[in-house]
Amino acid sequence: MVRHLIITLAFLSTASYAVEICDSRKSKCAQVGSGAVWMLSIIETSLEPCKNNIEIGEWLHNYSWLVTKVKAAKPEYDYFIRAQDKFWNTANVDIPNQCSKLVNLIKSGSPLNSELR
């Protein structure tokens, strides 16, 4: 319970801002919200449970520069990955629905400036 409280506080404590992050040449940029590390952990751990969805795989490939920057900025990323692995590896009947929501966020163009509930 304490872990979930810490995650919630970490997520909500800076939930009111978005920044633009660009690659080293400033040729590619993306809007990233305060929950970006949480959303990235969801995206990265969803590939297999979402049956290697093409949109998810392409987003991870096309935004590898952003993935690297977001991971480096947040030390709690490894904890979020473990939490997401537990979610996706359960016998949850809602996984297809979650995959669909995630694909829609990716198609929206700024999944790291979104939230998935």
Rank of each mutant, 00 (worst) to 15 (best):
S27L: 05
Q31T: 14
K69D: 09
A18I: 02
K69E: 10
Q31V: 10
A18E: 12
E58F: 03
L66E: 09
A30W: 03
E48W: 00
V37L: 04
L66R: 02
L60P: 02
Q31D: 12
E48A: 07
K71E: 15
V32K: 11
N62I: 09
W38Q: 06
K28M: 10
K26T: 10
C22Y: 14
R25K: 13
E20K: 05
Q31L: 09
E58D: 13
T45A: 04
A18D: 12
K28L: 15
S24P: 01
N62M: 13
V19N: 09
N53T: 09
V67Y: 01
T45K: 05
K71Y: 03
V37T: 12
G57L: 02
E44M: 01
V37R: 10
N52Y: 05
N52A: 03
C22T: 14
S46Y: 02
A18N: 14
I54A: 15
N52C: 07
W38N: 11
A72Y: 00
A30T: 07
T45P: 00
W38R: 05
K28C: 13
W65L: 13
S34V: 01
G35Y: 02
C50W: 04
T68H: 12
S41A: 14
D23P: 01
Y63D: 07
L47E: 11
I42G: 07
L66G: 04
C29G: 04
T45G: 00
K26G: 03
I21L: 15
A72Q: 15
W65Y: 11
E48Y: 00
C29I: 07
L66P: 01
H61A: 15
K26Y: 04
E20M: 13
N53A: 09
N62R: 15
P49N: 11
C29M: 10
A36M: 02
A18V: 05
S27F: 14
K28Q: 15
